[in-house]
Simulated scan of single mutants.
Amino acid sequence: MTPRGVALLVPDITARRGMERATTNLANALAGAGWPVRLISVFSNGAPAAYPLTPDVELLHLGLQREVSNNVQRLVKLAHTLRHLAKPTQTAEVIIAAEGMLAVNAAILKMQRPWQQVIAWEHLLSELDPPLYRRLRRAFYPMLDAVVVLNEHERLAFASWGLKHVVRIPNVTSFPEVQVADYDQPRAISVGAHTADRVKGFDRLIPEAAPVLRTQPQWKIVIVGRDVPGPELEQLATAHGVAEQVERLAAVSDISAQYRRASFMVMASRHEALPMVILEAKAHGLATLAYDVPHGPREMITDGVDGFLVPDGDSVTFARRFEQLVTGEALRRQLGEAAAQSAAQYSPQAIAEQWRPLLQRSRARTTQRRPGNV
């Protein structure tokens, strides 16, 4: 059966963030499964993609302005984006929008293209939307053919809107080939951007790990991510007496090298959707210690099997689990090997197969279709 063309919409594929990595991985996976893929980066101006795309993925930059400060500007931006998306998506059999307002644009385009399959692919927790965006999504999402989410909480949330086809599909791993860690390395790794909202929780990770680090002077936590090398985390580590044991690195091009030098992953995030970093840790045979925050970690970590999941805010238990991992090489190995075994479910082939029924639904339509691929 001849594959249909897919237009994959993303805000800015040049940004080095989790959504962009997940989008790159999905584009590569679908192209590898035989689907012609055009990746449309709406707010970028032609810089290289942050993560490698295969030659089979066509990349198109629209170069639109992204920043807005009020609802009037948001509506103007919606209309402007809609106008610029019309032409590059018009021959696609399927549109996948990797961001809520891009999905609204695609839903509006679908009103004139009933033959097109339009799918919203959700990455951010829906309750974090600005009120206007949330209202627009509630108004236009019923026009979509499907909404794909990353966790069960989001699936239930969108189903409560009355949407009939909400599907949970995990992200594709960035590292299909599992690389088992060397568990005697005295390094824990934590990955994520240090943002003003402190969502990644480095401000609580350092104080909670510090008492253990002070008793284990050979151990380090390596924190990797955007804005991590700034003064705030340095001052926090100094205040807790572990300045030499908290290594802070900016976002790196070869994150795999950092995982390979670690013995386990630790994260203290305040909320997550489906953390790419846990997928990456599994692919390197690393157990993950995380708080049971809304909503992704609980769907990726089996407590005591391939990592530890601690009730959110229970700093005493978090510190105790951290100490167990630091002092127990056999435990790190046991949990890490189990994590590696679970990594296969996130392979490009496995995830592309989960997407296939959605992408093929358009072939069963009785409404008018437009011939041709992307």
Rank of each mutant, 00 (worst) to 15 (best):
R4N: 09
T14L: 01
A15G: 12
R21H: 01
A31I: 11
A33Q: 06
W35E: 07
F43M: 04
A50R: 09
D56G: 02
L64H: 06
L64R: 10
N71M: 13
V72W: 14
Q73R: 10
A79S: 14
T81W: 03
A86W: 03
A86M: 02
T89C: 09
A98D: 14
L102D: 00
A107G: 01
E122S: 08
P131D: 11
L132S: 02
R134H: 10
F140R: 00
F140W: 11
V147L: 07
V148R: 02
E152T: 14
F158W: 07
H165L: 12
I169K: 01
P170R: 06
E177F: 10
E177I: 12
V178N: 09
V180C: 12
P186M: 04
S190C: 15
V199E: 11
R204S: 06
R204A: 09
K220E: 15
K220G: 05
I223R: 04
G225H: 04
P229Q: 13
Q245H: 05
V246I: 15
A251E: 06
S263G: 04
M265P: 09
M265H: 14
M267S: 13
E272K: 07
A273G: 15
L279Q: 07
A281V: 13
A287P: 03
A290P: 08
Y291S: 06
P294M: 00
D303I: 02
F308D: 00
G313N: 06
D314P: 10
S315M: 13
T317V: 04
T317A: 03
F322H: 01
L335I: 08
E337I: 13
A340M: 11
Y346L: 14
P348K: 02
Q349E: 15
A352H: 04
Q368I: 10
